[in-house]
């Protein structure tokens, strides 16, 4: 899985391309950890090109959410694909990580 980071006006966008599985989960934690360490607290994970997630990936998402919140910020997810939506719903994690339709809209109501 490949990750890229882009600084936007009011948040940092992290995009992941590929499968968020046990191989990619530690990489996501590392990428988001670096973003938070650099002082960026509002993070949007753009999942447009993330075509798969499993419970390891979900664990990494929760870990990243905790990192952002402990730093006084938040992590939100956007553009989720059908398999990711299915896994979020079946594990009820959509209550904690509510998918946003667009990355731009994830923090727009704050």
């Amino acid at each position: 899985m490949r990750f890229s980071t882009e600084q936007k006006d009011s948040y940092t966008e992290v995009s992941g391309t590929g499968r968020l599985n046990m191989v990619a989960a530690p990489k996501l934690r590392e990428v988001v950890g670096e973003v938070v360490s650099a002082g960026n607290k509002r993070i949007v994970l753009n999942m447009l090109a993330t075509d798969f997630i499993d419970s390891s990936g979900l664990g990494a998402l929760i870990g990243c959410l905790k990192m952002a919140r402990q730093a006084g910020g938040d992590l939100r997810i956007a553009c989720v694909q059908p398999q990711v939506k299915m896994v979020l719903e079946l594990t009820s994690m959509n209550r904690v990580l509510t998918p946003h339709a667009t990355a731009e809209g994830a923090f727009s109501n704050d």
Binding site: S55, S56, I62, G63, V87, L90, T91
Partner: peptide
């Protein structure tokens, strides 16, 4: 399913579903 802030333990619940 574990508590919402747990980072592991959802695998078998997912398989069962």
């Amino acid at each position: 399913l574990p508590d919402d802030d747990e980072e592991s333990g959802r695998g078998l619940a997912l398989i069962e579903a």
